[in-house]
Write a protein that binds this DNA or RNA. Structure first.
Lengths: 355, 355
DNA sequence: TTGTAAGCGTTATCAG
DNA sequence: CTGATAACGCTTACAA
């Protein structure tokens, strides 16, 4: 049947069932105030007529969008490198779909455009809440979102806790995993452990860097170099080259994602170094490829889909007016594979900083 | 200012400007029928009052959602492996955002759920059009979408052309790139060229497989094995193992994506084979990591973001009632790097099929 | 050129 | 418990 056939509305159902539109609305949203028999009849008629709720009309009268926004600020070059989002979105959907909520997904080139996107989304009232990822130090977004009157859930806890009334968070502690990584390296006997990470403004970059530094300090080991990059494979390769050029190259490198670790691995191989015999490396994320490089990467696993699920749950709760929560999920944990081994025998004469 | 302040509506603007709501609407949508001076005044007042259009109200009265849907059927395990979508979505957005359209992005576990998602989206009239990816043979989706009364743009041309009135397509011919890959291998002297690809129901899997077979036939070379997998790194590794176990293993392997090629590379290395000296491999997609493995992967590049842009343009055109077009963008092209070389010297006695 | 009024399809209020 | 009636905020014939 072509779309010339007008949409069947609540009025049609009402007419056919011999009741008022209001009654139909009550029956359809199974709300008290309509006799059981009447309700049955209304429901039957609605089914017969093939009535479907109109999202648009509902939105207008309920002042609700039944949608949430996820906006991502990524340069075009970097956007494909991150395997996090599709999995995260899949997790979100497992709870959004049953609750008849949609996800507006936007990718913009930079953070300025990201803020603009939120402003527009709020001005047009296109969404009921927002998901904030890639938290940075002094991040302006939680405040902006709160000012715009929208609830938000951040991935990880912002550094200005409590400042913004309607902003909750769901966190997966990556410090635990990072510590496990560095400790496993220390235990294996490494004394020069470098860290290759992302831009320093990201909170999780800092957390992991601090975890790395903390374990080294506790073990009374010197901090080898910490290189800040842009998360890309190219940057991972570049950082690795640079580490190798040092007077005393590290015997182990911890990368803050698998992509950089894999790129780093290639550089090491090209330099004739065998992993893990000559040098150990670790990744982060536990992407599928991490299993399937040679050697398989020791890395840190985050339950991405579950993270998405919980974020969706909290967002739903927030739009119900519940006070924002700060949830901690199970921490990211070490996944031991084959890219870590004891360091090669130390060079003969060399006054190390190891005690 | 808290959200207690009621939203400023068109009526407020009208009152303040001393005109009717209708006039304001006309002025705001710069449509003829309102004097220049009046229009100015209305616009000024609207600016003063900080009026913002209400998407909900506009949606209802215009019977338009100002949104498109992209729904992805991917198992949780596979969803992260594909670097295509974030880049594609970024491309879509560069044209959707200026046109005030949003993208509803959904990831569902399988194709049944995907069809349900379209039905719901259409029933609720949540979107004005749909983007269809991963076209399969006898794909039920173009028909379904057409029956649901929605326009759609497919990525690549469906195999039942013209069957569905409002379905257009935007294609990037991957056959050209695939042919270039195989020809470069043939030119290098390879005579046993295998192909590792995805599930056979995908159209592009068939196209590429046929391109591979076609070049081999034209060169009067035997077709080595063609292995159908699920696109994953694990499957790529597994397929590679299997190819190596053959009586006469291939001297070159063409993978249908970079991820499988990288996983395959690791398997080859683990077997002590040097790429490209002992065996040549090629990928597809030209992901960032492809540059950064050792050796860098010869692959095929698709302009993903441009693809997204054009799809958005066509979708917009389709919702304007323009007849569906079938657009061909520039084909995917070979990117030569270092994973291809002539095959190792042929084993002494062996009657090759090369003429 | 401008104003009026009727949609768009629900939900919510408030007398009966 | 029921059923008019008025929002919700904008668009758009149709009059004036």
């Amino acid at each position: 049947m072509p779309d010339s056939a007008r949409r069947v509305t609540i009025a049609d159902v009402a007419a056919r069932a011999g009741v008022s539109a209001g009654a139909v609305s009550f029956a359809l949203n199974d709300r008290p105030g309509v006799a059981a028999a009447t309700r049955r009849r209304i429901l039957d008629v609605a089914g017969e007529l093939g009535w479907q709720p109109s999202h648009r009309a509902r939105s207008l009268s309920r002042s609700t969008s039944f949608a949430f926004a996820l906006v991502l600020a990524r340069s075009t070059e970097l956007v494909g490198a991150d395997p996090f989002f599709p999995a995260f979105v899949a997790g979100l959907n497992t709870v959004l779909v049953p609750h008849a909520r949609s996800l507006l997904f936007t990718v913009v080139p930079d953070t300025t455009a990201e803020l603009d996107a939120y402003r527009r989304l709020a001005a047009e009232q296109r969404v009921d809440g927002v998901i904030l990822t890639d938290l940075r130090a002094h991040d302006p977004r939680p405040r902006l979102i709160a000012d715009l009157g929208l609830p938000a859930i951040t991935l990880g806890r912002p550094d200005r806790p409590g400042a913004d009334r309607r902003v909750g968070s769901v966190s997966v502690d990556d410090v635990v995993g990072m510590r496990e990584v560095v400790r496993s390296l220390v235990t294996a006997g490494h004394a020069r452990i470098a860290h290759v990470t992302g831009p320093r403004e990201y909170l999780h970059v800092r957390h992991r860097r601090n975890a790395w530094a903390g374990v080294l300090d506790a073990a009374e080991l010197p901090r080898a170099e910490c290189l800040y990059t842009d998360f890309s494979a190219g940057a991972g390769a570049h950082a690795t080259e640079r580490l190798l050029r040092a007077d005393e190259p590290p015997t182990a490198i911890t990368y803050t994602n698998d992509v950089m670790a894999i790129a780093g691995l290639a550089v090491l191989q090209r330099h004739g170094l065998r992993v893990p015999h000559d040098i150990s490396i670790t990744g982060f994320d536990d992407t599928e490829l991490a299993h399937h490089v040679d050697p398989p990467l020791t890395t840190v696993r985050t339950a991405v889909a579950q993270w998405g699920e919980r974020v969706a749950v909290e967002l739903l709760a927030a739009t119900d007016g519940n006070p924002p929560q700060h949830i901690d999920l199970d921490p990211a944990r070490l996944v031991v594979r084959a890219s870590v081994a004891p360091p090669p025998a130390p060079r003969p004469a060399q006054k190390g900083t190891t005690r």
